[in-house]
Every structure is written in C-alpha cells, then in structure tokens.
Amino acid sequence: MAEAHRNETAADSEGVDRRTVLTGASGLAMAAGLVAGYGAFGAAAARYLYPSEPAKKRWLFVVEAARMKSGDSMVFRAPDGASVAIARQSESGNVGDFLALSSVCPHLGCQVHWEGAANRFFCPCHNGTFDPSGRATGGPPGEAGQSLLRYPLKLENGLLFVEVPDVKLAATDPVKPNSGEVC
C-alpha cells in the first residue's frame, strides 16, 4: 500500500481529483445516467416484489335465493379459506334480504364463530361478541364500536353471488394416477 501514491499522473494531469469528480457538466451527466439506469432497474425490482394483484376479487355463486328462507343462514367458504356467514333476514326478494359477514374479528383478526344458543358471534381471543347483523355488542370490538366486515352480494336471475378475494389455485400436483385406494 505504500506504493499507492506512487503515480497519480493520469488523474492529476487532467486536473481532476476526487472532490471535483461529481462537479462539472460531465460529472453531473454521469451521475444522472447512473441514477437513471440503475434507478429504473431498482424500480422494476420493487414492482416485482410488490404483490401483483393485491385486491383481485371474484363473484362466486353461493346458492339459489329461493332455497333460503328468512331466518336461514349458511356458511360459505371462500377460495382463500375464509368462511363467510350468509344469512337471509327478510323476504322482499331483493339483495337487501341477504347479509354476508366475514368471520374475521375486526379487533385483532381472530376467527369468530356462531353461538346458536346465545344468538351471537363470539371471538374467543378477547371475548368479543357480535349480534346477528355483525354489530359488536361486547368485548374490545364492542367498546371500539366495530362491526364484522360485510362482503358485497348480488342477485342475478334469482342466484345469489358473493364477491370474495380471488386466490389463484396453484396447479398443485398433477393428478396422481389412481393409487387403488378405496374412497
């Protein structure tokens, strides 16, 4: 390393040293070029890492409306595994009769479940409770005045559809040949 300073002729002869490297037109242009090129690459990489279609949703068939009477309820399982409680509350014949509630507690994201005897949804994490329309009646969500998330519903030709997040089902394993198991 002692020889490091031995010969700086090339740089010195042109009167450029480290401090002036980034000054002057050519220096600025070089910096701009480098930032533009590698910056664009970085932007592409960032876009790559950001989830592609975060909020893609899909209307899925639930049931023929006529099969549910007022007071009936059912659980619909969305492709991402979330269970959606769907209930019919009146018989007017339009989509307003129906209610689709998320089973995710708005407090901290635990799964609520229906307690038929108490006529309420119950969250076991912090004892949150919700009435049949999804409004919180007790526990931390009750204090915060939160409600269970509602999924959009639509009626088409008497068929009930719910809009839920779409999950691309990985092609997973190719179909395995019959292993001879008796199903």
Binding site: N7, T9, A10, A11, R18, V21
Partner: peptide
Amino acid sequence: QSHFNFFPDHFYTEL
C-alpha cells in the same frame, strides 16, 4: 512501466 490510478480512471472503465 507507467501506471494510472484505479480511481477514477479504471473505475470509470468498470462502470
């Protein structure tokens, strides 16, 4: 037998 500095000359080449 002459030499030049790695920085900035050869560094520019590498860039």
